[in-house]
Design a protein around this nucleic acid. Sequence first.
DNA 1: TAGATTGTTAATCGATTAACAATC
DNA 2: TAGATTGTTAATCGATTAACAATC
Lengths: 212, 212
Amino acid sequence: MPGRSVSRQTLSRLPTYLHFLRSLEGEGRRYVSATAVAEALGLNDVVVRKDLASVSSSGRPKVGYVRTELIGELEHFLGYDNTQEAILVGAGKLGKALLSYDVFPQYGLDILAGFDTDPQVYGTEVGGKKILPMEKLSNLCRRMRVRIGIITVPGEHAQEVCDTLIEGGILAVWNFANVHLSVPEGVLVQNENMAVSLAILSNHLKERFSTK
Amino acid sequence: MPGRSVSRQTLSRLPTYLHFLRSLEGEGRRYVSATAVAEALGLNDVVVRKDLASVSSSGRPKVGYVRTELIGELEHFLGYDNTQEAILVGAGKLGKALLSYDVFPQYGLDILAGFDTDPQVYGTEVGGKKILPMEKLSNLCRRMRVRIGIITVPGEHAQEVCDTLIEGGILAVWNFANVHLSVPEGVLVQNENMAVSLAILSNHLKERFSTK
DNA sequence: TAGATTGTTAATCGATTAACAATC
DNA sequence: TAGATTGTTAATCGATTAACAATC
C-alpha cells in the first residue's frame, strides 16, 4: 500500500540501500537479498528486511529482490523521479557551494535561485542560478509554488529568514544555521547542524581516551 | 562525575542549549531554568532537565542554573575549550567551503590542512590552509597526532580515502560523501549525509499532500 | 510557609532484535 | 525435498514522558 508512513530511522537508511544497490551495477547479478545488503552495510538483517518491505513488496522467499526493480522502487519512494523546487537564502560560502552542488538534481532537488541582502551580489550567477534580492522572495515562492527553503545565513538572521520563507508558502526548511527555528505546525525543519556532528565526534574522542 | 556516558540524542541537543543560553546575553538575568530552556526550544522539560543534569550539577531547586556557569560547563563538555586538530581530504567546492568556514575554531575544531589528488591545487591556500598532495597525508597525521579526518571527496573514492586516514591514525571520520564507510572497531564515522536530509524533506512533503 | 524548580523513580512508547512460520 | 530467504509476531532494549519526592 503506497503512502504508508515510515519512521525517520528507516527513512535515513533508505538512501544508503539505494546507493549500495546501484554500486552493484556491473556485477551481473539479477537478484539481491536483504541479508546481503545488511552484511555489506554492517546492519542487522531484520532491520533491512523491514525497511525494504516498507518500500517494496516484490521480495520473494529464497530469491530476494530483483536488483533493478528494487532500485526503481527506492528511487520512487525517495522522490528522485519527482523533482521538488527549492530556493536558497544566504549566498555566502556555504550557500554558493550548495548552489553549485551538481548532484542535487539526481536527488530530486532543483534549486531555482538564491537570495541575499547584499546588493553587490544581485544579478550575479552561481552554479547557473541567479542571486536575487530578498524582496523578490515571497513573490517567486508563491508564483512557482516552491515548497522547500534552504537557509544558509548566519544564525542571527535565520529565524527572520525562516519567517519570510513560511510567509511565502514554504512547507519544509533545510536549515544550515546552528540555531533552533520556531515554525508553525505542519512545517518541517530539517537541521544540518554541524555543531551537533562536531559534538558527537569530540565526545567519541573524549570517551576513547578516558577508557583506554 | 565527569566522563560519564551520554546518549547520542542528548549529545545532539547540547549544542542547541548552549546556543540558546548564549543568546540570552544582555537580558541581564542571572539564572535560567531547564523549564525555560525547554519552553523556548519546544522540548519536553524533563528531557532538558535530564540532559543538563548529565553535564552539570549546579542546578538549584527553585532557582535553576547560573546562566554563565552552565554555559561554561556545556562548552567544556562539548570540548570547545580543548581544540582538536583535523585534516580534510578533497578540495572541491564543498571541501573549500569547509576549509574557509571560520566558525569551526569556536567549536573546538582546527583544520590543519587540506589534501587532494589534483596537482593543480598543490600549494594553493584556501581559508589560510595549504592544500597538500595525498602522499603527505599519513606522515602529517602521525606527526601531528591528528585524530579527526574530514572526507569531502566524490563517493567512489571515499572508502579508499577513509582507509588512508585510518592508516594515518585517525580515530574519527566526518564523512560528507553519500556512501557507507567500513571502519575498524573503535573508529567513529559521523555521516553528514545530504541524501538522508533530502529523503526526510521529500517524505514530509509527500505526506503533507497525501493527507490533505 | 508556599511555590517553583530540581532530580529521581516508575510507566509508556517506539525501535531493534530474536524467534518462527510461510514460501519459492 | 531441503535450504535460503521473506515477512510476521513476540521479546528486549532504550529513550521519552509522567508522577512524585526533595529542596531552596
